[in-house]
Amino acid sequence: MGKIRVTNIRVYAYHGCLSEETAIGSDYNVDVEITAELSKSARSDKLSDTVDYVLLNRIVKEEMAIPSALLETVCERILVRFFDEEALIQEATVSVSKLNPPIGGDVERVTVERTKVK
């Protein structure tokens, strides 16, 4: 087993419960970590034997482009796609952070993290 992390994927998106959030949008950071059997790829040195982090990044960007009221929903969609599109993944964690959220205070970020196991 092994882990692959893709950290600090920067995205501009339109998530939130307030109409301004879905109209104006804001900056987000997404972190993903997957657990998979990486022994074969460690020996073969072939991309086809591992989880391609380009795929993980593409899924994140595509799902972040779909507006949602809740970050929990965005995390769920990303996790479902990971498992649907890559059979090697055994466990995945996704963290979505909204930077400078409009919550009436000086807050750097709000983060929702979800984990799924195969």
Rank of each mutant, 00 (worst) to 15 (best):
D27Y: 04
T50M: 10
R58G: 02
V96R: 00
E21K: 02
S26F: 00
K40N: 07
V30E: 05
D52V: 08
D52E: 10
T35Y: 03
D45C: 06
A92D: 11
V74Q: 00
I89C: 13
A92I: 07
A69W: 03
M64P: 00
V96A: 06
P101D: 08
V60W: 12
T35C: 03
I34Y: 00
D31H: 06
A23G: 01
L71R: 01
A87E: 15
V60C: 14
Y28T: 01
D45Q: 07
C75E: 02
I78G: 03
A69P: 03
V54Q: 13
A69H: 11
N57D: 15
R81W: 12
S39V: 03
E85S: 14
V54K: 14
L71W: 12
I89Q: 11
C75V: 07
V32C: 10
A87F: 10
L38V: 10
C75D: 08
E72Y: 05
R77K: 15
Q90V: 06
I103N: 14
G105H: 08
T35G: 02
M64F: 09
K61E: 13
N29K: 10
K98F: 04
T93V: 13
T93R: 15
N100P: 01
L71Q: 04
E85Q: 15
S44E: 11
I103V: 15
L38E: 02
L71T: 10
I78Q: 13
E86C: 15
M64K: 00
K46Q: 15
S44R: 07
T22C: 05
D49I: 07
E20W: 01
N100Y: 09
Y53N: 12
V74C: 00
R58M: 06
I66N: 12
V51K: 08
P101I: 09
A69I: 13
K46Y: 09
K98W: 04
E21A: 06
Y53M: 11
F83Y: 15
L79D: 03
A69G: 10
K98H: 04
P101H: 08
S95V: 11
L18G: 00
I59A: 08
G25W: 06
E20K: 03
I59R: 01
E72M: 07
L56E: 02
L56H: 07
R81H: 14
E63P: 07
V51C: 14
S95T: 15
D49E: 13
S48H: 04
G104W: 10
D45P: 05
